[in-house]
């Protein structure tokens, strides 16, 4: 475990906590894409299947359980408990356009043609695009609350920090995983436009508002 990896995981954890707290404290999920949250639930479920048969470390098991349970809780809060506040009119991204192609790609390009490996690969590909419904929602409404921006910043930073972790591991351990690296690059690039707006606007106390 290197510093980039640890910071990446903490950033990921922070994002999930920010989102849950925002929904719980304001009793509202306005401005949050339920479609993206469903995709993340699919991502964690298909990636962490090894939880039942492979023990890696207490840290690994603990984090997987947190990510899975937080993700299902978020989906529950959005579609059940605070359903009335859910912005479904703006959250119109068709998730099958992301799920089906990434699944086909995982069948074609993977490390090993086994069920667990194909599902792991699918989760890596799907995660790289899972934020699109959320970014689409922000672009449709033209703005995002500060707390939603902090969530997106923490979530985007996580894979960016993993990229640094992979650069480090390549040199220090002679280890690399091309599938994770390419998908991680795609994932981070998708956030670039948002990072720019976050740094130039939200950090200066302004609301994230897209230019008309």
């Amino acid at each position: 475990m290197n510093i980039f990896r640890l910071l990446g995981d903490l950033s990921h954890l922070l994002a999930i906590i920010i989102l849950l707290l925002k929904i719980w404290k304001t009793r509202s999920c306005a401005g949050i894409s339920g479609k993206s949250q469903i995709l993340f639930a699919i991502v964690y479920t298909t990636r962490y299947l090894d939880l039942v048969n492979t023990y890696i470390s207490a840290y690994n098991t603990f984090m997987k359980i947190i990510f899975l349970s937080a993700s299902y809780t978020t989906v529950y809060l959005m579609y059940m408990k605070f359903k009335a506040t859910y912005d479904h009119n703006h959250d119109t991204f068709r998730i099958e356009f992301l799920v089906l192609p990434t699944f086909v790609l995982a069948l074609l390009i993977n490390h090993e043609p086994s069920v667990v490996e194909v599902l792991w690969t699918f989760s890596i590909y799907l995660e790289s695009l899972a934020i699109l419904p959320q970014l689409f929602l922000v672009s449709k409404t033209g703005e995002a609350e500060s707390i939603t921006s902090h969530y997106l910043f923490a979530l985007g930073s996580y894979r960016g920090l993993y990229l640094l972790n992979w650069v480090y591991r390549y040199y220090a351990e002679d280890h690399y995983d091309l599938i994770a690296i390419v998908a991680g690059l795609v994932q981070t690039v998708l956030y670039c436009d948002f990072f720019y707006l976050y740094i130039t606007k939200v950090l200066k106390g302004k609301k994230l508002q897209l230019p008309a």
């Binding site: 990896r5 995981d9 990921h12 090894d50 492979t54 890696i56 470390s57 690994n60 984090m63 997987k64 990510f67 490390h111 090993e112 490996e117 792991w120 993993y162 972790n165 351990e173 280890h175 995983d177 994770a180």
Partner: peptide, 10 residues
């Protein structure tokens, strides 16, 4: 086959 070391990542 995926390297076991990458299975440690989340």
């Amino acid at each position: 086959k995926r390297d076991t070391r990458s299975k440690d990542e989340l």
